[in-house]
Amino acid sequence: MKSILQVRDLRRSFYGVKVLTGVNLDVIEGTITGLIGPNGAGKSTFFNCISGLYMPDSGSVMFDGVDVTRSRSQDRVAAGLVRTFQLARGFPKLTVFQHFMLYGQNHPGEGLLASLTGSAVGRRHEEELAEEALSTARRLRLTHVIDNPVTALSGGQKKLVEIGRALMAKPRLILLDEPMAGVNPTLMAEIAEHLKALNAEGVTICLIEHDMKLIGSLCDPVIVMAEGRKLTEGSFAEVVSDERVQEAYLGGRH
């Protein structure tokens, strides 16, 4: 069992409030790891520190054996560490297709000179990327809206676009911040199937979610966070029967 993400003693405060108080956890390669915990446990801040949106005050983040604690977000993405956002976020005027194309990494045609000269390597890569974008759209059943701006999509479709564009970056680990928030039960099942299929293809997934049924059916292991650190981890059955977890959710310890 190799850990693809190794986090050691990660700390981060905002205006004197300690949000992460020393996170120690590992995400094992090939798993769908669930990250749960009561509101304010620091789950989103944890994601933000892992993805490079915030720099941690101290501690370390190793991704695939490489220290990325202080790396720029774009370099983490290029290395295969990709995230989505809690509120589906997109480039308002760009189409679904363009969103997918944008997430292709190390595109040789994307430089200023390559674009000005229309270099053959760049054009070929662009064509290959377009093929991938179309097949990603087919896979997520977004083909009929591929030329729509993302603002014209339904909430569920936006979530699918988030997943699709993360896929285009050929991730090794995807961090999903509440992929099911505001999604109807039918689509939720569909998204869950997509995630399982991706996982079967070798993509490690770490997701924050509040829907316990979904966590139970999808995630193993489940990591519980409370008060800015890992409380415990184990199978879903193990963590829900853990007294400390129940206390954390009820806020019983204060």
Partner: peptide
């Protein structure tokens, strides 16, 4: 492709770094 990246930066600079 260069122009596409520019538009992405125009629409949401922070998100572009996550692309």
């Amino acid at each position: 492709p260069f122009g596409r990246v520019l538009k992405a930066i125009r629409e949401d600079q922070e998100l572009a770094t996550f692309a």
